Simulated scan of single mutants.
Amino acid sequence: MTDEERLIPPADWRTIVENVPLVSVDLVVEHEGGVLLGKRENEPVRGEWFVPGGTVLKNETRTEAVHRVADGELGEPVVIDDCLGTYEHFYDTSEIDGVDSKHYVATAYHCHFKLDNPDVGGDDQHSTLEVFQPPFDGYHPYVECYLDEL
């Protein structure tokens, strides 16, 4: 089944976001001595620097989701180094008009690019992707939790 075939119709997505937490993966990608973050274009956390991530699809393992998200959001494959743990993220916004919150149960994975010189591209969720160097301070609190685990 392709990703296109797995898309959830908007009315169903609205019902899901209004009523249940979303299972997701977040990628903490180390690169060039820092961590890759993207400037978010959509809610939640629009305008913030955040790690790439996405919802786990039905019948997809979390590690399969990591690889799908890396290919789709970064345009490059990653190697998973470690699982940093599972976190709950509560947001008071969503991308759906009239839905004022979103809840994720996110598993964060420490990763690196498979290639030494990846050609990292963006997607419609990020206006730009950049590598941020330590010290890691002043980021979104959920990103700081991940960086503290490194």
Rank of each mutant, 00 (worst) to 15 (best):
K39Q: 09
K39L: 15
R40P: 01
E41W: 04
E43Y: 12
P44C: 03
R46N: 08
R46S: 11
R46K: 15
G47Q: 02
G47D: 07
G47T: 08
G47N: 07
E48V: 02
E48Q: 10
W49Y: 13
F50G: 01
V51P: 07
V51H: 14
V51I: 15
P52H: 13
G53H: 08
G54L: 01
G54H: 07
T55S: 14
T55D: 14
T55H: 15
V56D: 02
L57P: 06
L57R: 11
L57E: 13
K58T: 11
E60C: 03
T61P: 00
T61I: 00
R62C: 04
R62E: 08
R62T: 06
T63P: 02
T63F: 04
T63W: 04
E64D: 13
A65I: 01
V66N: 04
V66D: 05
H67S: 05
H67A: 06
R68N: 00
R68W: 00
V69S: 02
V69Y: 05
A70H: 11
G72S: 14
G72K: 12
G72E: 12
G72F: 10
E73N: 00
E73T: 05
L74C: 12
L74I: 15
G75C: 07
G75T: 04
E76H: 07
E76A: 14
P77H: 14
P77N: 11
V78E: 01
V78P: 07
V78R: 05
V78G: 06
V79M: 09
I80T: 09
I80E: 10
I80Q: 03
D81C: 06
